[in-house]
Amino acid sequence: MAEKKKRWAMVIDLRRCVGCNACTVSCKIENNVPEGVFRSWVKEIEKGDYPEVTRFRLPRLCNHCDNAPCLAACPVQATYRTEDGAILIDYDHCIGCKYCMTACPYDARFLNPIRKTAEKCTFCYHRIQEGLLPACVTTCVGGARVFGDINDPESLVAKLVANNPVQVLKPEMNTEPYVFYIGADQNIMGARYDKLEKGEK
């Protein structure tokens, strides 16, 4: 039997996230992300009515989807997928048209205000090529972020997905994301997420 190709994935265990934003800061430093925009961030969501209000933390980043809408939307093929599943952007070819930003259902992309090209999380691809973990994973004080090859059954990522109920953001979009959550409230993962993010009931 042929060995499965490597497929990078991330698991975020919300039971361990303390909302410290170390992931956000380390991402900005590692990737020289300009002020006012983010590749990775932690969304705070409130649900319910006073006095019964519940607060959720939802770390966000590009989902590196198998069925990525941004790939089809790019008119110059500046967005591409690596052999190990990461979705990247060729900044030399990107024309800054924002089509990929509109196509992404997760609002994971932004226009770099300095370079004038689309930008997003890359799983710190420059680091994983060197055998290192993404910056956000190494700085997560609660150990909430786990990264690895999901096609390797011995990897921690594969074991977490196999042995826990996992959720993905907006499953109804059928994008087949490779960022998985453990311990997420189902009401903030699907179609209601957009309303909750905007503060609607």
Rank of each mutant, 00 (worst) to 15 (best):
Q129R: 15
A22Q: 10
R127L: 14
V137M: 07
L58Q: 07
N187T: 14
C97A: 06
A68L: 00
N164E: 05
E46A: 11
D90I: 09
M173K: 11
G183F: 02
K159R: 12
R109A: 00
A68I: 02
T102Y: 14
C100G: 02
K170G: 05
T122L: 00
P171Q: 04
V11Q: 04
P134L: 06
P177A: 07
A72M: 10
K47M: 13
R16H: 07
A72W: 09
C121N: 01
L156A: 08
N151P: 03
F147N: 00
V166W: 03
R115F: 11
A191N: 12
P165E: 15
E3A: 14
N163T: 12
D49P: 00
R60I: 10
C23T: 03
N151G: 07
I45T: 04
Y50I: 12
P69S: 09
E35D: 15
M101I: 15
P113K: 13
P153D: 14
G199Q: 07
F110K: 05
D90S: 11
E46L: 11
N21W: 13
C104T: 03
I45H: 01
Q186S: 14
T79C: 04
R39D: 00
Y106A: 01
R57V: 06
Y99F: 14
K43M: 08
C17G: 00
E119W: 08
N67M: 06
R15P: 02
N187M: 13
Y193K: 07
L111D: 02
M101Y: 00
V168P: 05
M1P: 05
V42Q: 10
D84C: 09
C94I: 08
A135C: 06
G36M: 10
T117V: 14
G190Q: 06
C65Y: 01
P105L: 07
T138D: 12
I150R: 04
N112M: 09
G143S: 05
I150H: 01
I29H: 09
L58F: 08
Y193W: 11
P34H: 12
L61K: 00
P51G: 08
E154D: 12
R192K: 13
L61H: 00
S26D: 11
E30R: 08
E200P: 01
K120H: 02
Y125A: 07
A78L: 01
D152I: 10
G19C: 10
V25N: 04
A9L: 09
C27L: 04
V11I: 13
G143P: 07
E130F: 02
V11L: 10
Y181N: 06
K5R: 14
V137T: 11
V53Q: 06
F38W: 14
W8G: 00
D13A: 03
E3F: 10
R7I: 05
M173N: 09
L196C: 01
V166R: 06
K198Q: 14
C140W: 02
R145H: 13
C23Y: 02
L111W: 01
G96Y: 03
K28S: 12
P171H: 05
I12F: 06
G199H: 06
E35F: 15
P69T: 08
